[in-house]
């Protein structure tokens, strides 16, 4: 589903590469934790999948497509097959839960009838039934993140990228968020989650890819967060 083939990324204003010779293959339906300290290249890894950045060297394939051969014109179509969730939720404050989720479908031109059908289903799936008419500022952090996940998943992407989705949420609520992501993963969606949250990584025992200074230093199925930063 996601193949990184000897990928190096150097940002133009920096001498040190953000990623260096990264080889990672994520297959369909996998759940992968991407761990590592700040600045280790986790965000760059996610941005490369979305083609928000181009690799300096190496090739990337996402959903069977060679990103280097993807024209700018086709990038939106790539992004429709990838859902994204962020630490800061990125909801539209002047729209209700329902409208926030529907927005993702409206802007890709889905018919109104389809939107009316699928939006409530996804809101139920993330556990927000009965809250579809709330505004984001009336919701807790965990609930806001559920809205963001619903928006990312409503178009049934093949891949869900999550960049520190539990970063702004207390541990108890984080477990709930992880259960939602797990439920999405069980529908066959590939999930890649960048995180600092050792407790969650250790609890879920999924595949762990650890980055350090732009290199993959560990790739372990059913792994833990790691000795150097974990435990505490």
């Amino acid at each position: 589903m996601i193949h990184f083939d000897n990928v190096t990324k150097v940002y133009s204003h920096q001498s040190r590469p953000a990623l260096q010779g990264v080889n990672v293959a994520v297959e369909k339906g996998e759940f992968v934790f991407l761990v590592g300290p700040s600045g280790s290249g986790k965000s760059t890894f996610l941005r490369l999948i979305l083609k928000e950045e181009r690799p300096t060297q190496g090739g990337i394939h996402v959903a069977g497509k060679d990103l280097s051969k993807l024209t700018n014109w086709k990038i939106p179509h790539l992004r429709r097959r990838i859902g994204c969730v962020f630490q800061d939720f990125r909801l539209l404050p002047n729209k209700t839960v329902n409208e926030n989720v529907a927005f993702a479908l409206e802007v890709i031109g889905k018919p109104r009838r389809f939107i009316r059908k699928v939006v409530p289903e996804v809101i139920d799936l993330v556990g927000l039934e009965g809250k579809s008419h709330r505004m984001p500022d009336e919701l807790s952090g965990g609930e806001q993140q559920r809205v963001a996940i619903a928006r990312a998943f409503v178009n049934r992407p093949m891949v869900l990228l999550a960049d520190e989705p539990t970063g702004n949420i207390d541990p108890a609520t984080s477990i709930g968020i992880m259960k939602v992501l797990d439920r999405i993963n069980r529908t066959g969606t590939t999930v890649v989650m960048a995180t600092h949250d050792a407790a969650i990584v250790d609890a879920f025992r999924k595949r762990v890819v650890e980055l350090e200074d732009g290199r993959v230093v560990r790739d372990q199925s059913r792994g833990v967060y790691g000795q150097a930063y974990g435990g505490v």
């Binding site: 939106p76 992004r79 429709r80 859902g83 994204c84 539209l92 802007v107 890709i108």
Partner: peptide, 17 residues
């Protein structure tokens, strides 16, 4: 910028944005 950022992310076409 919030709206356009999300539009970009969910794959709205350039024309639409």
């Amino acid at each position: 910028r919030r709206e356009t950022g999300i539009m970009r992310l969910v794959g709205a076409s350039n024309l639409y944005i």
